[in-house]
Amino acid sequence: MHGLICKTLEEFVIDQHGPQIWSQIRRDADAPYGRFEALRNYDAALMLRLMDASGERLNRPIMVIFEDIGHWICTHPPLEQVRRLIRFSGRTFVDLLYSLDELHDRARMALPGIDLPHFEIAEPDPGIFHVTSQWSFPGAGAVLTGSLRAMADDYGALVLIDADRSRPKGDGWTDQVTVQVIEHAFHAPREFTLGGVT
């Protein structure tokens, strides 16, 4: 399990619920002492224990927490760079949806060794998109749902998003997320210049 993913859960819990709760979760999950390092690898079983422990301590289904994490990584100001990286996917929200099948490879290019979900996109009816994920963990659909909600806002699009429960498939898990794009330009998008901010 790439440390970046463990670290994301850690930073989210600390930011939203405080360091004490995170210490409890870490103890519950029998995690090693200290903070997670984004550039190290961790045991996948540890991540599963942390997910269970987080659900228990925060008293919410882990998939609801994952959806919040998806939204948080796109909107939390110190993570502005993540939002920017996602905006490179395309000019419009629909471009972003159609670039999700490149996400796994894009992430690999930036950080070899990271295992992000594989996504496939279909548009069975105009304006209706089915995004199917395949990942070694459950919850890719939940995280994507949260992120797409945030990014729709960023692009100024009005959308409805629904996620199915994760189902086991092959060695991992699959999810399906349905996105209905109601209005492409519902409000003005947030600014995005390619050269970055100086």
Partner: peptide, 8 residues
């Protein structure tokens, strides 16, 4: 790109 505020 920064100088001319270019976008995608």
């Amino acid at each position: 790109l920064r100088r001319h505020r270019l976008t995608a």
